[in-house]
Structures are given as structure tokens and as C-alpha cells.
């Protein structure tokens, strides 16, 4: 078997356990922002689109598919982090009562 693959599988398994540990104890109120935050992190797929398009593909249709993939991935990343920030801003200002304005938007 390809030694690179074995290494990658090791990283995969360790990252899986890490993911379990990191999220196992969180307050209920943070569930939705965490879902949104992890959602933004898997926007990392944009890297795959960058690599495949950047290292060259033949054909107009393939290029169109990959540009659309980059657009999708970018929306996932940028939108994901911004939306998470807006959700978390509600926690930040809650004691001062500043969350009302944010909630009305």
C-alpha cells in the first residue's frame, strides 16, 4: 500500500477523535453557532477546487464546473464565518441588553 495513504489514514483517524473530544461538552445555547462554525470550516473544500483548476484541466465545461465549485466553496467559507460571527454577537451583548437590535435585523 502507498505509504502516503497510510499516513493520511492515520491523520484521518486522529482528526476524527479530536473532533469528538473538542465538541463533547458544550452548552446547549452554543449548538447552533457551533454547527454554523463547523459548517464554515468544511468550506475548506474550496482548496480542492483551487488545486484541481489551478493545476490545469482540459475543456471549457470542466473549467465551468470548477469555477462554480470555487464560487460554492467561497460562499460556504465567507458566508459561514460571517453568519457565525453574527450569531455569536448575540451572546456577547446579551448582559447589556444590546442583543435586541441585532435580533430585529
Amino acid at each position: 500500500m502507498d505509504p502516503g495513504l497510510v499516513q493520511n489514514l492515520a491523520v484521518l483517524v486522529l482528526a476524527g477523535f479530536l473532533g469528538f473530544v473538542v465538541i463533547s461538552k458544550v452548552p446547549n445555547t452554543l449548538h447552533t453557532p457551533l454547527m454554523s462554525g463547523t459548517n464554515a470550516i468544511h468550506g475548506v473544500v474550496v482548496l480542492a477546487a483551487l488545486v484541481v483548476l489551478g493545476l490545469g484541466v482540459e475543456g471549457v465545461f470542466n473549467k465551468v464546473l470548477l469555477v462554480v465549485a470555487i464560487i460554492f466553496g467561497t460562499i460556504n467559507v465567507v458566508g459561514g464565518f460571517l453568519v457565525t460571527d453574527r450569531m455569536l454577537a448575540m451572546f456577547k451583548h446579551k448582559p447589556a441588553g444590546g442583543a435586541d437590535k441585532e435580533a430585529d435585523r
Binding site: V11, A15, G19, F20, L34, N39, I41, V44
Partner: peptide, 17 residues
């Protein structure tokens, strides 16, 4: 590696979540 780690962390933490 960046895709493997980030993807798998989301996969695992997302399941727990």
C-alpha cells in the same frame, strides 16, 4: 492534509453535535 484534518474534524464534531 488540510482537507483531511478540517473535513474529518467537522465530520466527527458534527456527528456529536
Amino acid at each position: 492534509t488540510a482537507l483531511i484534518v478540517a473535513g474529518m474534524i467537522v465530520g466527527a464534531s458534527g456527528s456529536i453535535l
